[in-house]
Design a protein around this nucleic acid. Structure first.
Length: 423
RNA sequence: GGAGAGUUGGCAGAGUGGUAAUGCAACGGACUCGAAAUCCGUCGAACCGGCGAAUACCCGGCGCGCAGGUUCAAUUCCUGUACUCUCCUCCA
């Protein structure tokens, strides 16, 4: 949520900034018109309420003195009716203003490359050697099926497309990867959290998934409950409607959870393999900090996610997403993309974002500064990392000519000493 | 799932159809070399609006879990609902 006062005071600045995110400037004008009308009605309504309060006091006095108050009561009967009518109108207007504001994305940071489509992202850095395979690399789903550790057919039978079973050492590898991530994260100072996987509408609104992106998630029938599309939702909402004691900042959380996504609109994309599933595991990182530190925290968050890939020995690069490619809530996003030999390309495995005060304002998460004033915290989130995609990357990058897969050194202890997955 | 009790400031805790007690904590001041104690004062707010450069004053609205209703007037009465606690039931 953007600051309505800022929109009111700097409409041209907001229009210019949000135009880079495909927001029509007319939307801002429409919002401001509604807001002006709303404030006009507020003044009217509150003037009448002040009058009612005054006269009510007088009535109270008269009654106490056993004097006649019928005239005043009759007069107030009308005023109250007027107030009621006006407030009904005002309620509608308030909802409209709120709804319009809630659909506006965050203001991009000045350093974010401007781009109105997916291209134009800027590569920040590269790391690692792409594996030099002297055979035709197989896709991870082929490797997994051949080894009998991934079963997409039965996933489809039991649930549908974009579901699978991990079997045997496949399930073990998934577990090894997320335990490795969680251990690394907690060692770096993140507090491990095991949150709810089903959340209410207020939470979905607080992190910005609602009201705009309802079609992307799974909701429980006839209930205001949603399967989390990312652990970011329960982690950020942990402090919803709270004031975080200043001495606790910065707060660093990490959690392993499944993530549930309907993938509406992505029909035909990544239909095979572990890249795009309706249910996948992800280790998420969330940070709350003071505004002045959030850009440093974003850099540290990104570097930490990179370190995980480095320890796994997977080649990757880091890109800064363009204004229109970033998620709704982000002011800046760095994506980590890991190398996939079979596809001969980089694929996203982590997305690290600074949402500045955007989520904090929606979710009312504040702290008291040294002057005792309440300020919105800045909230950041990043994958550390997507587990399924990490498993896919390992299968492709560590595959051998005979169809077996070497276990990365750091995972061997987590695999019970297994160094190679074979048939 | 059933029955009952509860939800009021940072915390504790009264209350009533007509200005939301009191205590603790906190903050400011007095006293003191300084502190403690004591005394005086401030203290609902993560909300909205007006005036403003202001997240400074001031004014108004709003405010006793949330949403409605009755009323000139609701923290109080009515309805619904969420959550917490206790007991029963059921379960892992």
């Amino acid at each position: 949520m953007l600051d309505l006062k800022l929109i009111r005071q700097e409409p041209d600045f907001i229009k210019e900034k949000l135009a880079t995110r495909n927001v029509d400037p007319a939307d801002i004008d429409a919002l401001l018109a509604l807001d002006a009308k709303r404030r006009e009605l507020i003044v009217k309504s509150e003037t009448m309420k002040a009058q009612r309060n005054t006269v009510s006091d007088e009535i109270s006095q008269l009654k106490r003195n056993k004097e006649d108050a019928d005239d005043k009561i009759k007069e107030m009967r009308q005023v109250s009716a007027d107030i009621k009518a006006l407030d009904a109108e005002l309620d509608t207007l308030k909802d409209q203003v709120h709804d319009a504001a809630a659909h506006l994305p965050n203001i991009p940071n000045d350093n974010v490359p401007v781009g109105l489509d997916e291209d134009g992202s800027v590569e920040l850095r590269q790391w690692g050697e792409k594996p030099n395979l002297d055979f035709e690399p197989k896709a991870h789903w082929e490797i997994g099926e051949d080894l009998g550790i991934l079963d997409f057919e039965r996933g489809a039978k039991v649930s549908g497309s974009r579901y699978l079973y991990y079997m045997g050492l496949g399930a073990r590898l998934e577990r090894a990867v997320y335990n490795f991530f969680l251990d690394q994260n907690t060692e770096a100072g993140f507090t491990e959290v095991l949150p709810p996987y089903i959340v209410n509408d207020d939470s979905m609104y607080g992190t910005g998934q609602f009201p705009k992106f309802k079609e992307d998630v799974y909701q429980l029938r006839d209930e205001d409950m949603t399967l989390i599309p990312t652990a970011e939702v329960p982690l950020v909402n942990y402090y919803r409607n709270e004031v975080i004691p200043e001495e606790k900042l910065p707060v660093w959380f990490t959690a392993l959870t499944p993530a549930f996504r309907s993938e509406a609109g992505s029909a035909g994309r990544d239909t095979r393999g572990l890249i795009r599933l309706h249910q996948f595991n992800k280790v998420e990182m969330v940070k709350f900090c003071k505004p002045e530190n959030s850009w440093d925290e974003l850099e540290a968050l990104t570097k930490h996610a990179e370190m995980l890939l480095q320890k796994l020995g997977l080649a990757y690069h880091v890109i800064t997403l363009t204004t229109s490619d970033m998620s709704f809530t982000a002011a800046m996003t760095h994506d980590l993309e890991v190398w996939f030999p079979n596809q001969n390309t980089y694929r996203e495995i982590s997305s690290c974002s600074n949402t500045t005060d955007f989520q904090a304002r929606r979710a009312h998460i504040q702290y008291r500064d040294d002057k005792g004033k309440l300020q919105y915290v800045h909230a950041l989130n990043g994958s550390g990392l997507a587990v399924g995609r990490a498993v896919a990357a390992i299968l492709e990058n560590y595959q051998n000519a005979d169809g077996s897969v070497t276990v990365p050194d750091v995972l061997v202890p987590y695999m019970g000493g297994v160094t190679r997955i074979t048939k």
